[in-house]
């Protein structure tokens, strides 16, 4: 199975502090992967590097079947390549309706002039309605997203990610601050999404990860400490020492 994303030998330094140290990581085209690690392990920085927000000092990041380097691209180009990202804190456009949020995320031409003359066709509106159904916001389409509850915002953001139709989804702590029922729903959405695309979930909550039932990568001090099933990594003595034991 050829990898969708291949990160190899990546390092990045902030003012002498090595946030990512010779990190290598691979994920296939339709795979669900969880990343865990203590605070400061470099989880968020890893996402920043993949999405182009931070440029690594060394290493390479190859993408897709053609193995194109992501290092030369900016955030928007990487996003258009099919990498979607969900932030820790829900960031939706609160001044705009759920429908507008989803329409903006819909996979369409992103150029200013095309967008200026773009009008949503019937199928686009149907797609938005379907997505809203999926994330449980069908009733809220015309409401301003700022009026939604915290959990609804999280879902809306996931819905926006799905609307982007990315091939790789990077999700940062999706379950934070959710009720148990909402977590259940979130798990379903992510597992469903991973059937057709790669999904990387960064999470602290072991219970949530167990429910995802997927391969786990443990990060520590900017590099991979262990990788494998959740049972495998939780049995690893090193992992217990640096993370679970505490």
């Amino acid at each position: 199975m050829s990898a969708l994303l291949e990160v190899s030998g990546v390092s990045v330094t902030f003012d002498g502090f090595r946030a990512i140290n010779n990190l290598s990581f691979e994920i296939g085209p339709a795979e669900l992967r969880a990343i865990i690690g203590p605070n400061g392990a470099g989880k968020t920085t890893f996402m920043d590097i993949v999405t182009g927000k931070t440029k690594p000092d060394e290493g390479r990041i190859l993408w897709g079947e053609l193995g194109r380097s992501l290092l030369k691209m900016n955030e928007a180009q990487i996003a258009r390549e099919g990498i979607g990202r969900k932030f820790q804190k829900p960031t939706v456009f609160e001044d705009q309706s759920v429908q507008e949020n989803l329409l903006m995320a819909l996979k369409k031409d992103r150029g200013p002039f095309r967008v200026l003359f773009w009008k949503p066709a019937g199928e686009d509106l149907d797609r938005v309605a379907d997505l809203a159904e999926e994330i449980g916001l069908a009733e809220e389409l015309t409401r301003k997203s700022g009026e939604l509850s915290h959990g609804q915002k999280q879902w809306l953001e996931i819905g926006m990610l799905l609307a982007q139709e990315p091939r790789l989804l990077l999700v940062d702590e999706p379950a934070a601050g959710m009720t148990p029922a909402e977590r259940e729903h979130t798990t379903e959405i992510l597992v469903e999404a991973a059937r057709t695309r790669a999904v990387v979930v960064v999470e602290h909550d072991m219970e949530f990860i167990r429910r995802l039932d997927c391969r786990v990568t443990v990060l520590h001090e900017g590099s991979v400490l262990a990788e494998g099933s959740l049972d495998h990594v939780t049995a690893d003595q090193q992992v217990i020492d640096v993370y679970l034991g505490r």
Binding site: T51, K53, N74, E75, A76, Q77, A79, R80, G84, R85, F87, T91, F93, E94, D95, Q96, M104, A105, R110, G111, P112, V115, M160, Q164
Partner: peptide, 15 residues
């Protein structure tokens, strides 16, 4: 969207 959260718009793929 750019006004409210520039980075988010960028990660949606808009230049």
């Amino acid at each position: 969207g750019i006004r409210d959260n520039e980075a988010r718009v960028r990660f949606l793929g808009y230049s």
